[in-house]
Design a protein around this nucleic acid. Structure first.
Length: 299
DNA sequence: CCTCGCTCCTGGTCGC
DNA sequence: TGCGACCAGGAGCGAG
């Protein structure tokens, strides 16, 4: 499943191959992949066709390409299984192809193909508005409520700390809450908690500034590591913008490691086994020794 | 306003 | 071998 590092890889690919190209044709093969585009496929096609694409941006797992005209952006969310492929038109359509955007750049015709098996992702056109905390930056209106992600240079730990102190929730729930900070999914939430030696059921209002800093720094670190390795994925569904799979599972220390020894404990000569628990209807992995259950846990 | 559980969707896997 | 149950999960939405 695409996590933030994969989305950043896709953004870079889109920037290289699609930015400053002209849209010559748009084909919607499955209306369900037009997420949130209430006006329907005809409107999407009519407004996108003929446009010149501008720069590519990202916040959390939202990716968008600004259009040269009209303060509009083509917003892309990969969801669970979305892929963006840049292909020559003579290459056969892949399975689950949902939207085809034919582009022309330097007299070369290519296709930006949106492929999605589970249809949790999708595309839509949205208006660009100034970001509230930094009005020089433009952001799609539907993405404006999303917090900055840990890779954003304007990400502010102090703001997050104050937000968490006011909340009555659990730490993992807050990590996954996209209005607090964006781009942290189930996998990186578990990895960040493990590295910060904090338990997911820790009540947010009891967190110290130091602990908040630790867990978000950990999230940033593990995502930068993934990015340096070309994206995290152990799901063959994920393919980057040029159609190449990314692999990174060896760098995950807890996620998916139920019953396997904790790598930190192992260095101390202890054999603690990673535990899996149901939390928020999702799997959570943690080390019972490194991440003890807090005295006043909030499930 | 805040918190939290439900829901969308498909394909792979497992037990009987 | 067939079939149903279950699992994976981002994020919007609405109930309380």
């Amino acid at each position: 499943m695409p996590e933030l590092p994969e989305v950043e890889v896709v953004r870079r690919g889109v920037q290289q191959w699609a930015s400053h190209a002209r849209v010559t044709d748009v084909e919607v093969l499955d209306d369900r992949s037009l997420r949130r585009h209430a006006q329907g496929p005809e409107d999407f096609i009519a407004r996108l066709a003929g446009q010149r694409l501008g720069e590519s941006y990202r916040r959390g797992k939202y990716l968008w390409i600004a259009l040269d005209e009209g303060y509009l952006a083509l917003v892309i969310h990969l969801g669970m299984s979305g892929q963006v492929l840049i292909s020559d038109p003579d290459i056969a359509d892949p399975k689950h192809l949902k939207i085809r955007i034919t582009i022309s750049k330097n007299d070369r015709i290519q296709e930006l193909r949106f492929v999605d098996q589970r249809i949790f992702g999708g595309l839509y056109l949205d208006t660009l508005i100034p970001a509230e905390d930094h009005p020089e930056q433009l952001i799609p209106a539907t993405v404006a409520h999303i917090g900055r992600d840990p890779l954003d240079s304007l990400f502010d730990t102090e703001t997050v700390f104050r937000t968490l102190r006011k909340k009555k929730s659990s730490l993992k729930r807050a990590l996954l809450d996209q209005s607090v900070s964006s781009g942290i999914g189930n996998i990186y939430a578990d990895e960040a908690l493990f590295r910060a030696r904090l338990h997911y059921a820790r009540p947010t209002e009891t967190l110290t500034r130091k602990e908040v800093s630790r867990v978000y720094s950990a999230a940033e670190q593990v995502m930068r590591l993934a990015l340096a390795q070309g994206g995290t994925s152990f799901d063959a569904l994920y393919v980057n913008v040029n159609g190449e799979s990314g692999y990174f599972d060896r760098s995950l220390n807890v996620y998916g490691r139920e019953g396997k020894p904790c790598v930190v404990c192992q260095e101390d000569g202890l054999e603690t086994l990673i535990v899996r628990r149901k939390f928020m209807n999702r799997s959570s992995y943690y080390c019972p020794k490194c991440q003890p259950i807090p005295r006043r846990a909030r499930w």
